[in-house]
Every structure is written in C-alpha cells, then in structure tokens.
C-alpha cells in the first residue's frame, strides 16, 4: 500500500473547509496550518481564470526531509506516509529548509499563543493538548491523518472509502476536490484519476516523487460528485460538550490517552 491523494483544482472553490477540518482534527496551534491554499488569477487570450492549489505535505517517496533529518525523527512508514516522531526531533529545522514544498513548520512559542491570546485556555484547547500534543521546539506537518488510517485498517475499514479511515480534509471537502486512496492499487480511485486525467506532481523535476497529484479538469469528466451527506469537520468547534464529542469523533486518539 502507498497512500496518495488526488486534488482536482477545477473543483476546489477555496472554501477553506480542509484547512479548518485539519485544524480541528489535530488541535493545531493558532498560527500553524498543515493544509494551505493559494489562489491566483491568470489571463489567457483575454479570458480570466482563477486557480486554487490546496497544498499540504506531499508525502514524497524520495523525501528530502527524511534524508536530512539528523536524528531519524522524520521517517517514512511502509505505507509511504512521512511522519515525525516528536520525541526524537531536536528542532534543527534542516527539514524545514530542505522541503521543496515548504510544508514543514517549526512550532515555536509564538506559534502557540492559545486560541484567544491573553486569555486562559478554553476547555477545548486543554483537552486538545492532551489528545493531540504538539511539542514546542519541534517540527510539525501533515501526516495524512495517519492515526485515522491505522485505526481504520485495524477495524477493517478502507481508507479513502470509509470516513473513519480517511483524512479529515478529504472527508470535509464539500466540492469533492480531494480523493484519497492506494496508489499501488491500479483499480483504486486515485490511480484511475491519475491515469485518466493526467495527474501531475508539483516540482516533479526535483525527483522527490510526491504522493499528492493534481488534476486540472482539462482531461476527463466530472465523475467524482460530492455526496449529499457531506459534513464539515469545522462544525466540531461549535459543539458544547467538547470532551465527549471529541472522544466520539476521534476514537483513535482516545485509545492512547485512557
């Protein structure tokens, strides 16, 4: 298995749902985002066009960040996901420098002033720091919600198909611009999309072989419509009983903290 993602930049409508869902899923500090959006306007023959690129860690097969890490804190799992063992990270930031996609962030004190700087932490933040601790002085990045994938596989779910085994950003995307699945399976949804719609990797010339592909709508049809029951993960922020709801929504985190 090698997990990958296909992003249809023609479908993305810049709702920032993936950014919010990721923040909620991982209880990210205020100034840290693992998913980022960039939009720019182009003109082609007098016709204006707006393009949006959602970017996150590309989970490169030949990841420079893994090669440069002096402690082995950054490593690649057997399923291709590049992850960081925070307890081994010394905070040298070599991986931040070496990542051609600039998708690693050093978590400094100023990045984590609390959701309401100057005020005491909310119950949500306190619980979040226990469920998903982020260590200051180390590097963080997207991990394709590896804990959800592991939990799903242990429980017979299929990542990319079943919501509880699929990255939060993919679940929450209302436009269904994001597709997740196994790149090694030629029949998976991602493999088919890449072949049929000519998936492209960012900065492929660097030889990093990213696991995130982009399709731009110029090839193939719109065969990946959003289901009616699409739910945004950001709704969780407004729940009154944070602790119970978090345990209900993130059972894979609950296991490790009980």
């Amino acid at each position: 298995m090698k997990w990958g993602m296909v992003i249809d930049i023609k479908k993305c409508m810049r709702c920032h749902g993936c950014v919010a869902a990721c923040r909620v899923e991982h209880f990210l500090p205020l100034h840290i985002t693992w998913v980022k959006l960039i939009a720019y306007e182009t003109e082609d023959g007098g016709v204006l066009d707006v393009t949006t690129y959602p970017v996150r860690c590309n989970q490169c097969k030949e990841a420079p960040c893994v090669d440069v890490c002096p402690t082995g804190a950054s490593y690649q799992r057997a399923d291709g996901i590049v992850t960081i063992e925070a307890n081994k990270c010394i905070g040298c930031r070599y991986c931040v420098i070496a990542c051609p996609y600039q998708n690693r962030t050093f978590l400094r004190k100023s990045s984590d002033p609390g959701y309401f700087p100057g005020y005491p932490q909310t119950g949500y933040e306190i619980k979040g720091k226990k469920l998903y601790p982020h260590q200051r002085g180390t590097t963080t990045k997207c991990n394709f919600c590896a804990e959800k994938i592991d939990y799903g596989l242990e429980n017979g779910l299929k990542p990319g198909i079943d919501r509880d085994a699929t990255p939060a950003c993919v679940n929450t995307c209302q436009a269904r611009a994001l597709t997740f699945g196994d790149l090694n399976d030629p029949n998976s949804n991602v493999s088919r999309l890449i072949i049929q719609r000519h998936g492209k990797q960012l900065q492929a010339g660097l030889g990093t072989d990213p696991s995130v592909y982009y399709v731009d709508g110029k090839h193939g049809g719109n065969d990946n419509k959003a289901p009616e029951h699409a739910m945004t993960g950001s709704h969780i922020q407004h729940l009154s009983s944070v602790e119970d709801r978090a345990k209900e929504l993130f059972p894979w985190l609950k296991r490790d903290n009980e």
Binding site: G72, C89, I90, C92, G137
Partner: peptide
C-alpha cells in the same frame, strides 16, 4: 539554536544512524 537543545545527543552517531 536547537528547538530542543538537550536532545542534541540524538544527532551524534552511534545514537543515530542518520
């Protein structure tokens, strides 16, 4: 400079094979 200075030894062989 290190974010976690007291872990510096983790970057010195033989504590790492990186």
């Amino acid at each position: 400079y290190l974010g976690r200075p007291w872990r510096f030894w983790r970057a010195i062989p033989p504590f790492t094979d990186a």
